[in-house]
Computed example of a mutant assay.
Amino acid sequence: MTDGRARTRRGLLDRRGVSETIGFVFVFALVTASVGVVYTTGIGGLEDARQDEQLTNAVRAFDVLDDNVGDLTREGAPSRATELKLSDATLGFGDPVSIEVQVNHTATDANATYSATTRPLVYSGAAGDVVYSAGATFRVDGGSAAMRAEPGLLVDDRRSMVPMLVTYPRSDSGGVGGSSTVLLVAYRQSQNLDGSFDTGPDAADEARVNVTVDSPRAAAWGRYFEDKGMTAIDGDATDGDVTYQFRTDHLLVSETVVEFDVKG
């Protein structure tokens, strides 16, 4: 009887040992899988954060570029240079963007049209793009563009101004890429007053000014025009262009031409 109880006890201990071993294997597998998931997710999240920070740094660099171009347009400087870290990105030029300004004064039957075409400067990274176009800076994430620096339109019922900044590449070689630091040099080629439109001191009403922008970032332009208090004539950006209107007594349209040279 004693031998039987001993054998039973040994059997119970053996089964308990097997159960504990199987339990340990299951727990170890679960911990290993959890660590793998956390590791994979964490690494992906860190990579996304790194790429987003690189795009944010590019936006800051374009803010400096905008200030330097401002020295050309407002201070009359002949040239300015801006350093830009690419960080596995490319720097080149996008498709042409056109801007047209149409002025009409019904009382005097006077009208005028001013237009310009520019080549946007484009930084393309893994997280998105940063675009400098017609004096405005855009951040583009997932196909959605947000204007980060404004082009400086002055909209007022008395005196208004539409500045047109035309940029183009010195050599259209397709841009540069990699992780090096490049030097972007902006040269002022010309600056003049395209036109001045005045309704006259005795005018009974203001002139109507329509501003049309044909751009892949037309929706962001439309939001900017709305923020300036302009009225949508064609606010549907799905076809690639928008037209907004404002009224004023006096309008100035200036044009500055700037050449960009990218030195890798």
Rank of each mutant, 00 (worst) to 15 (best):
V69W: 09
A220P: 01
V35H: 02
D52C: 01
G178D: 12
V253D: 03
T82N: 14
G177P: 00
T248I: 10
L72E: 10
E20A: 15
L252P: 04
T256V: 09
L153W: 11
D156P: 08
L193M: 09
V18A: 15
T2K: 13
V185C: 02
M147D: 10
T106W: 03
D67K: 13
D71N: 13
A107P: 02
R208L: 14
Q102H: 00
Q191M: 12
T106M: 03
A6E: 11
G235K: 07
K85F: 03
G44S: 14
S115W: 07
D129G: 02
R208P: 01
T181A: 08
S190L: 03
T231H: 06
D141P: 00
V155S: 07
S171W: 15
V209N: 01
V35A: 14
T113Q: 07
N210I: 11
S180T: 11
A110E: 08
V242R: 01
V155L: 04
A145L: 01
L165C: 11
G240V: 02
A49L: 12
T2C: 13
D236W: 01
S144Q: 12
D172K: 07
G135P: 01
Y168H: 15
G152D: 06
K85Y: 09
D71H: 14
P169Q: 07
L46R: 01
A126L: 08
D202R: 02
L84A: 00
D261F: 07
A58Y: 04
T248V: 07
T82H: 10
F246D: 04
D67P: 08
D214Y: 02
G177A: 05
R10S: 15
E75C: 12
S190M: 01
L86R: 06
R208D: 15
R208Y: 13
A107I: 05
F24A: 15
L91R: 03
L91T: 06
L86S: 04
N210M: 08
E100F: 00
R80M: 11
A127L: 09
A49G: 11
D95H: 00
L55T: 07
V155I: 15
G76F: 10
L55K: 00
S179N: 14
V69F: 12
A49N: 04
S254P: 06
Q191R: 06
D66T: 09
T181G: 09
Y244P: 01
D234N: 15
A237C: 00
A126W: 00
Q189G: 07
R16S: 15
G42V: 00
L30H: 05
V140H: 04
Y123K: 02
A136L: 05
G142Y: 14
E100H: 04
N104W: 12
E226C: 09
S133R: 00
F26M: 14
G177W: 07
R170G: 13
A112F: 06
G4W: 10
V176M: 08
D198M: 02
D3N: 10
E83C: 05
S190I: 05
A6W: 10
I233K: 06
R188D: 03
A89I: 05
A89K: 00
R50M: 06
D241F: 07
A89H: 04
F93C: 12
A107Y: 04
R159T: 15
G94H: 02
S173M: 10
